[in-house]
Write a protein that binds this DNA or RNA. Sequence first.
DNA 1: ATTTGAATAT
DNA 2: GATATTCAAA
Length: 250
Amino acid sequence: MERGRSNIPPTNYSSIDDTISILVVDDDITCLAIVAAILKKLKYEVVTVKHPNDALCTLRINGGAFDLVISDVHMPDMNGFELQRAITQEFNLPVVLMSADDKEEVALKGLESGAAFFIMKPITPDDLKDLWQFAAMKRKEKANAFEERQKYIDSDESVNEDDDGKRKSPKKERCEDKNGGNSQSYSQKRPKIVWTNSLHNRFLEAIRSIGLERAVPKKILEVMNVPGLTRENVASHLQVLVFLSSDNHI
DNA sequence: ATTTGAATAT
DNA sequence: GATATTCAAA
């Protein structure tokens, strides 16, 4: 058969500062249209599909030559998590999940399972305008939330750009991989712990599995099982968490 | 003696 | 402002 694909230009959907291409997946055509419209207005190249299988097919056609995939969580046949797993397995692409479910657990599950980001509906342009970041960081996408904790302990200046002082948006953290010539990584003096999102998620998950009332630093530390993390680290973080919880801080 | 939570320091 | 450290109490 000839390659009868009609409207999929052979242009490489690369992340050259020209155009970032995004594949949007949502069975709700209304939401699909809204997201697509917003993205297009933000100068992203947008391809929309309304079925998870279509998403996989589209990706396979061009070898995953997208910069990012945005998918709804609730879909027939395959939910967002499953799709995210499939895409992660087959391609090296950041997957952003979106859902109307504002339960924190859903968001946590998404991030823990490897999603790059989680957006809650209704989607606003503000939620989408910074998506290029994920496309940019995909270049060296490889980090289990488990291993990276052992490695982020390495910058002496503690100027980790996990959230680079941004707002409330959850983000996936990155850590410098191989030594790029800056091999000052022999840190005997431990830098400050950076409570990245996945680390925090792990922290929360540990508390939840223990039970809020019985969660004490030592127990939390055990459940978290993070090398290098101390009981004091957990205690300090717990103190903040309790403080924020007791007060009216969203 | 160990661990905790709060206060205080960096 | 976030994380570490100190410290008295359990």
